[in-house]
């Protein structure tokens, strides 16, 4: 259970970064950190104590495998995370070119 709690702490660090920081790059970093934490949490939930990788081999017993389903879905999530991060960074770079800063309080259209 402690592992889950540490994972939650990592997620909350990312959420704190998104909520508090003004710099666009910092916000993207916070988003990436919370994404890592969620991926890790799903893999942790599928882990079997002293299990083996979900690959069949001659001496592999079925009951001794970690759960392959979260692994397959997290693989998808990692790649999609790369796509969304690239899109966010491109947006930030274009905003920098237009306004000359990453600070969201100084970017006129983003002031909230």
């Amino acid at each position: 259970m402690t592992v889950y709690l540490l994972c939650l702490v990592l997620f909350l660090i990312g959420v704190y970064c998104i909520l508090v920081k003004r710099n666009l790059i910092k916000i993207i970093i916070g988003l990436a950190i919370s994404e890592y934490a969620v991926n890790l949490f799903l893999i942790l939930a599928g882990y079997r104590m002293r299990g083996r990788a979900p690959i069949f081999s001659g001496d592999q017993a079925v009951a001794n495998m970690v759960d392959p389903l979260p692994q397959a879905l997290v693989l998808t999530a990692i790649v999609i995370g790369l796509g969304s991060t690239a899109l966010l960074i491109t947006l930030a770079v274009r905003l920098y070119e237009k306004y000359g800063t990453f600070d969201i309080t100084r970017i006129r259209e983003l002031r909230g």
């Binding site: 079925v62 495998m65 759960d67 392959p68 389903l69």
Partner: peptide
Amino acid sequence: PPFGAPLFRTAELYVEAGARGESEPNLV
């Protein structure tokens, strides 16, 4: 569920099919 004991409900079907030789060795 406690850490180290996954639910393993949906994946059971996949693993059983794999054990019957209906899939590639790499389940993921």
